[in-house]
Design a protein around this nucleic acid. Structure first.
Length: 494
RNA sequence: GGCGGGGUAGCUCAGUGGCAGAGCAGCCGGCUCAUACCCGGUAUGUCUGGGGUUCAAAUCCCCAUCCCGCCA
């Protein structure tokens, strides 16, 4: 089995913020989950580096566009390193190979008659690099960026998007491609309202891939960027890899770029006679103080702050646990702290600490040998089933809820057995069972908080590889295992 | 203006015709190995308002109202 997952390519006009981080952490979690199932996973992310905005931004900083792109894409890479993002490839749209693929696709589509040369008459926003509809013709302002726009008339190459209207309607209605479910109608209504062909070349934008024709055009940055999902896995140059991974299993996007991904992207694939991705999931936004975050409002959440203050894993945990993927959610330190203290400290970290403490006191740090309470395995089995279903549905928070049942069970189990009491019996059995319960927790939580799981595994005397496969949650070890050290994994915050 | 989703406990929300629920916050108690934690118990509701269908409505229908999303 294979699993191909993508994030959008991030535009290099800004440094990574919480939105980028959110998508990428979610993708990472899925990638790790399927690797633990021993599927052949390919996780693609990267940066989108062409277009007018990049050109302008580079000029403002006295750089060439590629210098700017080099710098920002490096910042993204560093951020993903910090966040433990396990991508298989980081693609940049300025790479020679990607550019070649885009050009060849352009040619193929042109030859197939999917592109045609036409005349665009209307308004154009230079900044947004897009043709815009203007409500009030006497005051031509870009509906998006609010800058003045000019009326133009120019020739351009168009993609026959309109041709796919009916086909797209049927596909959207009858497939899982638009996720979450509640977005389906929205997209469908838009398609039904009529699709117009879209211009995919630009005359006055120099920073872009040259169209492979005898005229001076560059390729529209969105067309260029979308094709990374194909060029990233070898389309037209490494057919073997491409065949192995295409179609994408899950493509994650923010809800702001649904139009491109739920309509234009599938239409392009249809034009290329390629199968469509199975799911394109649009997640919600993190808001701050009831408003969307923006620099001007000064309510931007800084990933760095939370990483430094609480650690990478608590940050990853919060992003995936706090709200259902797909919904908007409020990001506040108050909510973060509550989640951190109650889930990670009180439930999880304290479970580890009290358990290891008992093993040290009662058994000198050795995991006792003997019978294990079968309920641990039965429960793990059940949890794993539900957890898998939920992850396959891209419901991170519900998956964690499922795993948490084991955390709660283990705390309760310890209390019921009270191995610290003089008159308690079955102390060996209790502590072995707790040990295996914790081991299974580490396996289940590994896609979400990998660094922590690895650290705890090391603490309790396990190898990293023991917690890297889901299969392993059924294994019972032979031989003595000794706790290597006991330390508090998450400190309570006031 | 059109289409769609929603309004349920202090908060976030689940609940598609059969005794109103979960988590967090609260309250009471127990325990005390552990990071004052954990465990158990417990209160809380005009299910937005009004009308209708039904033996029975948070749930189905109609009207109103408010919030959100997409489109124009």
């Amino acid at each position: 089995m294979k699993f191909y997952i993508t994030t959008p390519l991030y535009y290099v006009n800004a440094e990574p913020h919480i939105g980028h981080t959110y998508t990428t952490v979610a993708a990472d979690c899925l990638a790790r989950f399927y690797r633990m199932k021993e599927w052949d996973v390919f996780f693609l992310t990267g940066t989108d580096e062409h277009g007018q905005k990049i050109y302008e931004a580079s000029q403002n900083e006295g750089l060439t566009p590629i210098e700017l792109a080099d710098r920002i894409s490096e910042i993204f890479k560093n951020m993903w390193k910090k966040m433990n993002i396990s991508y298989d490839r980081f693609i940049r749209t300025t790479e020679r190979q990607h550019q070649e693929v885009v050009k060849r696709i352009f040619k193929i589509l042109l030859e197939k008659g999917e592109l045609y040369k036409g005349e665009y008459v209307g308004f154009y926003c230079i900044h947004c690099e897009s043709y815009v509809d203007i409500e009030d013709k006497s005051k031509p302002i870009c509906p998006d960026c609010k800058r003045p726009v000019s009326e133009i008339s120019e020739t351009s190459y168009f993609f026959r998007l309109s041709k796919y209207q009916t086909l797209l309607e049927n596909i959207i209605k009858n497939s899982e491609i638009v996720k979450p479910e509640f977005r389906k109608n929205e997209v469908l209504n838009f398609v039904k309202s009529g699709l117009t062909d879209i211009s995919i070349t630009r005359k006055n934008v120099v920073w872009g891939i040259e169209a492979p024709i005898n005229e001076k055009y560059t390729i529209y940055v969105w067309f260029d960027a979308l094709l990374n999902y194909l060029s990233g896995i070898g389309y037209l140059y490494d057919e073997e890899t491409f065949k192995k991974y295409w179609p994408a299993d899950v493509q994650l996007i923010g809800k702001d770029i649904m139009r491109f991904h739920h309509i234009i992207w599938p239409a392009l694939l249809l034009a290329l006679d390629l199968p469509l991705p199975k799911k394109i999931f649009a997640h919600g936004w993190w808001i701050s103080g009831k408003e969307k975050m923006s620099k001007s409002k000064g309510n931007v959440i800084s990933p760095e702050y939370y990483i430094n203050e609480y650690g990478v894993d608590p940050f990853r945990y919060f992003l995936l646990r706090e709200i259902p993927f797909g919904m908007d959610g409020e990001f506040s330190e108050e909510n973060f702290k509550k989640r951190y203290n109650s889930d990670l400290v009180n439930d999880f970290s304290n479970l580890l600490n009290r358990s290891l403490n008992l093993i040290e006191k009662k058994f000198d740090g050795y995991i006792p040998e003997g019978e294990i309470d079968e309920r641990i395995f039965e429960m793990s089995d059940e949890i794993y089933k539900k957890y898998s279903e939920r992850i396959e549905n891209i419901s991170f928070s519900e998956s964690i809820e499922e795993i948490w049942k084991l955390v709660i069970f283990l705390n309760k189990y310890l209390d019921e057995k009270s191995p610290w009491k003089e008159k308690s019996y079955d102390v060996e059995k209790t502590m072995i069972s707790i040990f295996y319960g914790i081991r299974n927790l580490l396996i289940f939580l590994n896609p979400f908080i990998p660094q922590t799981c690895e650290k705890v595994a090391e603490m309790i005397g396990l190898e990293k590889k023991e917690i890297e496969k889901f299969e392993n949650f059924k294994i019972k070890y032979s031989g003595r295992i000794k706790i290597r050290k006991r330390e508090i994994i998450f400190q309570r915050k006031k």
